[in-house]
Amino acid sequence: MDPFLVLLHSVSSSLSSSELTELKFLCLGRVGKRKLERVQSGLDLFSMLLEQNDLEPGHTELLRELLASLRRHDLLRRVDDFEAGA
């Protein structure tokens, strides 16, 4: 399986429902409101961002910004580990 997708799945499974709600709010300018209403998990949101090329294995800035906004430094370390091994 693609290591970047494994990372996104790992991050998604670590998010609380309130954190997902916050991420959806933060992505309002990037993803349409109707699409965001269908998001049920972090993976749903990340999939939309992947489709729009806002997220890519070599383009993790948005993911970092979102996780920093949540103050999830543990998840930021996972992104660091991914990039160190990528």
Rank of each mutant, 00 (worst) to 15 (best):
L7R: 01
F82V: 02
R30V: 08
T60E: 00
L70T: 05
L20Q: 03
R64D: 03
A68Q: 14
A86R: 13
G29W: 06
G29H: 08
A68E: 15
D54C: 09
E83A: 09
S41M: 04
A68P: 03
H59I: 04
K33G: 11
D80V: 07
E19Q: 03
L28E: 15
V79N: 00
G58Y: 09
G29Q: 12
T21Y: 08
D80W: 05
L7M: 13
C27L: 11
H59C: 12
L75A: 00
L20Y: 03
V11A: 02
L26V: 05
P3T: 09
L50E: 06
L55W: 06
E61H: 10
R72D: 00
F46T: 01
L7E: 03
K24T: 04
D74A: 00
E37H: 07
R64G: 04
L26M: 14
R77S: 10
S41T: 13
R38H: 13
K33E: 15
L70M: 06
S69H: 15
R64T: 05
L55Q: 07
R77K: 11
L67M: 08
E22D: 12
L49W: 00
G29E: 13
K35G: 08
D74Q: 01
K35D: 13
Q52I: 08
R30D: 04
A84P: 05
V6Y: 15
S69A: 13
L7Y: 00
A68H: 12
L20D: 02
S10R: 08
F25M: 15
E19I: 03
K33L: 10
M48N: 06
A84S: 13
K33C: 10
D81Q: 09
L43E: 10
E65G: 11
V6P: 04
A86C: 11
L50C: 13
L5E: 15
M1E: 12
G58P: 08
M1R: 10
D44H: 08
R64M: 04
E83H: 07
E56A: 15
R71E: 14
D44A: 07
M1C: 09
R77W: 05
D80T: 07
R78L: 12
G29N: 13
G32Q: 09
D81H: 07
L20V: 14
K35S: 12
N53W: 05
A86V: 09
L70N: 03
L5F: 14
L70C: 09
V6A: 15
H59K: 14
D74F: 00
